[in-house]
Design a protein around this nucleic acid. Structure first.
Lengths: 331, 331
DNA sequence: CTTGTGCCGGAAATCGATTACCACCAAGCT
DNA sequence: AGCTTGGTGGTAATCGATTTCCGGCACAAG
């Protein structure tokens, strides 16, 4: 493995000159620069990024901690983050927390230990432990979910309003018993969406009933179980507000098994637009979230804080979600 | 930022002892170990992973270079890789090459520069440049696609046979003019699937016609355009073999726009099982690939090569895909 | 001709850990 | 008693780059 000393020896200069020639910081005699370039090529020298980062006390790597890369919503965020980061010369380390605070903390510790330039996370809970990062002054930006345990930039969607609007839409459509399949307690978006659901019922003068609420993981099986339970009750709901597209896959499967068509029999509105939403019949009404843009923005905010003393006040950006009405929410 | 020297000073011992106490390599007097632990806690010390990696000449980070995290097939692979890596104490750096050899090479260089422990990649072409990795002896495992430019472990699916079987199935179902929507030339799976398509036609004594083949990106828009072109021909096909679920979304959209139902009007078999495959009507016949298992296996193979002189012969594992017949391929 | 002013490149310090090597001490053996 | 042995812990080298500091040289001004 060629090192900078090997290059220096071969080029007949000092390591300092090699470094200067390669980084173009200070001016170097063109003749020497040429010799260095030749030696680099001849040896196939690749600078050791670890040594460089150690000396410079900075890395060009961001960590992205999300709950699950298999969830298309987070995938779109990841894509936005990666696009922006890579354009700025940064790499992205991907971490799946699986909504598990222990796993999340482990990744936070790794990010701190490896001196990542910054961290973008969708925290499992508002109280997730990020002290290892705070101790190092590593900038943090949260995306999709709030973090109360630290003061940092946040890129959110107004889930509560979006959920309220979705339920209003169902109410306007004539649905009488609207149920809510919500995410696990403690996850800020899950709680917010449930609050929005309540808001809409309240506005319409309807009673809120815990009977019509199921809380489960943001996964297909969660949606399946929840929908099955709800629809096999003695007095089943005639509409569902589902908190993610992954859950909707399960919910729609349960409906199919039970012979309930969407729209006419059971109205359904799902969070997250999915590519397949228009392929099913009737097409799925969704609350589309600007996931890719969220990722991009989060990355930009984070990159703004990377580097020396960039400590402006923290910001919270709340983007609007868009209700896209299709056939599944009309009779 | 507390360093090991700070800890040593506070505990009244040398840095060597701190290191030994923390890493449990050599035995350390319990009294001193206690003092070290106290100092660590008091200072909130986190070891600098860069310094450690530099000295140890090894890192606990794998790079995963795939074309697109938004493609569920690759996402599933990523998940398999991450699960296995994280269980072994490794982190995963995610890179999107976008089927772009320049971008791919950039990531290969980063992986080499940052001395990643190993690289798992789905190369854009069989000739992708991985010399920077070879120069460092960084182990490589390819997943889903072959790499001819280096001798490394590979985890593949027998795409050719799978495609052949899928087309056979369509032929048996009575379809007469079967078209193929294939991926870009140069991508090994794309070429293999096309070969399999040819094999089946040949076996059945049918003529191969380039007219019935479209090559496009593994994306929704690619599938859309290709299907639209094929189905608006003077003599349109009555069945489609589509090379990925992302393309199928587009193809199904095109079919819907043109008023062609799947199954009866146009038979369709798609690579990659998708969660929504059973939600559409008729349900989509697919060639399911064991993506998660592929990721796990690739990670295990890679981890087997990480570390000193683990240089056993390279292996190629070819997994079978499974044809899951549903309604979209029967009249 | 001397002094001042840049500029360039080399020597060496530095980043923060791990680890080779050695000094020291206590215990065991002849 | 003297020597060996084994276990501990400190000193300093080391990983491979970047960067500070300084010496030497060239050129301009006085």
């Amino acid at each position: 493995m060629a090192t900078i000393s090997d290059v220096a020896a071969l080029a007949g200069v000092s390591t300092a000159t090699v470094s200067r020639a390669l980084n173009g910081k200070s001016t170097v005699d063109p003749v020497l620069a040429e010799r260095v370039a030749g030696a680099v090529a001849q040896l196939g020298y690749t600078p050791n990024g670890l040594a460089r980062s150690l000396r410079r006390r900075e890395t060009a790597v961001l960590a992205l901690i999300i709950s699950d890369v298999e969830n298309p919503f987070f995938t779109a965020i990841a894509r936005g983050v990666e696009d922006t980061a890579q354009a700025a010369g940064f790499s992205v380390m991907l971490c799946n927390s699986d909504e598990n605070t222990a796993k999340e903390l482990r990744y936070v510790e790794v990010a701190a230990r490896e001196r990542r330039a910054g961290v973008i996370m969708s925290p499992t809970t508002g109280e997730s432990d990020v002290r290892p990062l705070l101790a190092h002054g590593t900038p943090i930006v949260t995306v999709d979910r709030r973090l109360d345990s630290a003061d940092c930039d946040a890129v959110l969607v107004d889930s509560r309003v979006a959920a309220r609007d979705a339920v209003r839409h169902l109410i306007d459509g004539g649905y009488e018993r609207i149920a809510c399949i919500a995410g696990p307690p403690g996850i800020t978006t899950a709680d917010d969406r449930l609050d929005g659901y309540r808001d809409a019922l309240h506005e319409a003068g309807r009673e809120y009933s815990a009977d019509l609420v199921r809380r489960c993981e943001f996964r297909e099986t969660g949606g399946y179980e929840a929908a099955k339970q709800l629809l096999t009750k003695a007095d089943p709901p005639d509409a569902l507000l589902v908190s993610s597209s992954t859950m909707s896959v399960g919910a729609l499967q349960a409906m199919a098994e039970l012979g309930r068509g969407s729209g006419r029999d059971v109205g359904i509105v799902s969070f997250d637009d999915a590519p397949w939403a228009t392929l099913i019949s009737p097409a799925l009404t969704v609350v589309a979230q600007p996931a890719h843009a969220m990722g991009q923005l989060a990355a930009r905010l984070l990159l703004d804080r990377v580097g020396p003393g960039r400590t402006h006040a923290t910001t919270t950006t709340t983007l609007a979600a868009q209700l896209i009405v299709r056939g599944s929410s009309t009779r």
